[in-house]
């Protein structure tokens, strides 16, 4: 779009901010939707899709209880995690391509933002000095360390095809090259899905709904958080889930996303992404229902498999698609 990258003041920037806000405020709804479908699927009484908003509002109102030896880092972490996750959301095109925020950071920086949030969460887990926090931090960093190369390989496969790491440009490339089946993209998408499940703490890697001592990963790390701090962290993890789902939806199936900044196109983009997220949410629910939670040391082979898939994706790209 903009070859010379002007200073950030114009309508596109405004739209980018609006899109980010939409992203942030819709994320709880997506979680509510997933929870509702999951309850239906498992024959349980389902809460309203708006329940996550009520939970967040309640947490924001509640008193905050800090553990007695919590340092400033523990209080600072929720804000930083929230900010880093919002930044990650800001660079992922949701309803429209060619928004200037995608230029602030590319897909590698996006991975960096998520790593930054994870770094601080793990530190906060260690801050209190209980065994739970340490256990959660250690396991989360282990999973993160194994998931990150998969994420990178996926990103590399896509960006080597599209010759760009800019997410907006990469989606534009997929869009313009038409509906062709690329084996490399297929493998990359599968790898990304497996990593998304691991990174957002879903079954079978982790279970967001449990507080059983020995199986917690993410929940163990944030066990000591209460009130508004907990609200921010919970919200951030909902945004993170949505970031991954939007990434899968728009990177591999970008059709419907707005390519021009007109009202009709934007409307179409909104409907398209809503439909894709509803479907992806349902797919996630089916996956979570048919899988059983794994033992922690089953996770490395699982992520190893994801790495293999993304490696295959990269190799098929090199061997089949570039004619070398």
């Amino acid at each position: 779009m903009i070859e010379s990258l002007p200073l950030p003041i114009d309508a596109a920037w405004l739209l980018a901010v609006v899109q980010t806000l939409l992203f942030v405020f819709v994320a709880p709804l997506l979680s509510g939707w997933i929870k509702r479908i999951k309850c239906h699927m498992q024959n349980r009484a389902a809460p309203s899709v708006f329940q996550p908003y009520r939970d967040l509002a309640k947490l924001l109102r509640k008193h905050t209880v800090l553990a007695e030896n919590a340092s400033w880092l523990f209080r600072f972490t929720p804000y930083l995690v929230f900010a880093a996750t919002i930044l990650a959301a800001a660079v992922v095109p949701l309803i429209a391509l060619q928004l200037p925020t995608a230029q602030i950071a590319d897909v590698i920086v996006l991975v960096g933002f998520l790593a930054l949030a994870r770094f601080f969460l793990a530190l906060a887990g260690l801050d209190i000095g209980t065994a739970f926090g340490g256990m959660g931090a250690s396991r989360e960093m282990m999973i993160g360390a194994l998931a990150e190369p998969v994420l990178m390989m996926t990103a590399f496969t896509v960006s080597m095809s599209a010759a760009t790491t800019n997410l907006s440009e990469a989606m534009g490339y997929t869009l313009s090259s038409g509906l062709v089946l690329r084996p490399s993209f297929l493998f990359a998408a599968l790898g990304l899905m497996l990593v998304a499940v691991a990174e957002t703490g879903r079954v079978p890697v982790d279970n967001p709904a449990t507080h059983l001592e020995l199986t917690m990963v993410h929940e163990a790390m944030i066990l000591e958080y209460t009130g508004r701090h907990l609200a921010l962290i919970e919200w951030a993890s909902k945004i993170k889930l949505m970031v991954y789902l939007v990434l899968i939806a728009n990177l591999f199936l970008p059709w419907g996303i707005a390519t021009e900044l007109t009202l009709a196109e934007l409307g179409k983009g909104t409907v398209a992404i809503a439909g894709k997220l509803i479907l992806l949410g349902m797919a996630l629910v089916v996956w979570e229902t048919v899988m059983a939670k794994m033992r922690i040391f089953r996770v490395p082979p699982y992520l190893g498999f994801a790495f293999l898939l993304s490696l295959l994706g990269m190799l098929t790209h090199v061997v089949l698609e570039t004619g070398g």
């Binding site: 924001l60 109102r61 509640k62 008193h63 905050t64 209880v65 800090l66 553990a67 007695e68 030896n69 919590a70 209190i128 000095g129 209980t130 739970f132 066990l223 000591e224 009130g227 508004r228 921010l232």
Partner: peptide
């Protein structure tokens, strides 16, 4: 969050 912040209190960890 701080403008209308509720009181923060210290307690024992779990």
């Amino acid at each position: 969050l701080h403008v209308r912040a509720t009181r923060m209190r210290r307690g024992y960890p779990w």
